[in-house]
């Protein structure tokens, strides 16, 4: 495969990467999913009444993980004692509207729209919104430095929790 730089990597490759990420989540291959993140990565889901670029250092979020806590989140979700996800719910992450918003020398800013269905115990919930990614290249592979999930819903009224990864 020809190597691209962040200057010329085509959207199709970015899309392929995001679709593969979604598959890993839906197949509950979370340790592999975690490998898509850089060592200094962050993952967050802000509250829905703060600005999209709010900081978790001074605003209340739903999720604001550094790489350590993200790896602990993955460990937790793979345990039987993560009661909210035992037995595992079934999910489908639908990813669309992928855009490369900007290209810096070593980093892409990418956005996508998502609809994620989660079903468990006969109840299906829908999460929807947009994902904002900062992507970099590590050893020729795309990696996530930051993933921010901006929910469009007003809070989590109906879904009740984000026990899965969005």
């Amino acid at each position: 495969m020809r190597m691209f730089t962040m200057q010329d990597i085509p959207r199709a490759d970015v899309e392929e990467f995001l679709f593969a990420e979604a598959d890993l989540l839906d197949e509950w291959r979370l340790p592999e999913w975690l490998e898509l993140f850089t060592d200094d990565a962050t993952y967050s889901v802000p509250a829905t009444d703060v600005p999209a670029n709010a900081s978790p250092d001074n605003s209340l979020f739903y999720v604001a993980d550094d790489r350590f806590r993200l790896s602990e989140r993955v460990k937790r979700l793979m345990k039987r004692t993560a009661h909210a996800e035992f037995p595992h719910s079934r999910t489908r992450h639908v990813v669309s509207n992928v855009r490369i918003r900007s290209r810096a020398e070593a980093e892409l800013e990418v956005s996508s729209a998502f609809i994620t269905f989660r079903t468990k115990d006969g109840v299906t919930d829908t999460y929807f919104g947009s994902n904002r990614y900062r992507l970099v290249q590590v050893d020729g592979n795309l990696r996530i430095r930051d993933k921010r999930c901006l929910l469009d819903s007003e809070g989590l009224r109906m879904q009740g929790r984000v026990s899965i990864i969005l």
């Binding site: 802000p46 709010a54 605003s59 209340l60 007003e154 989590l156 879904q159 009740g160 929790r161």
Partner: peptide
């Protein structure tokens, strides 16, 4: 009150 509200629900 820190900015941001957690709004959720339970069945």
């Amino acid at each position: 009150i820190v900015g941001g509200t957690q709004e959720y629900s339970m069945r």
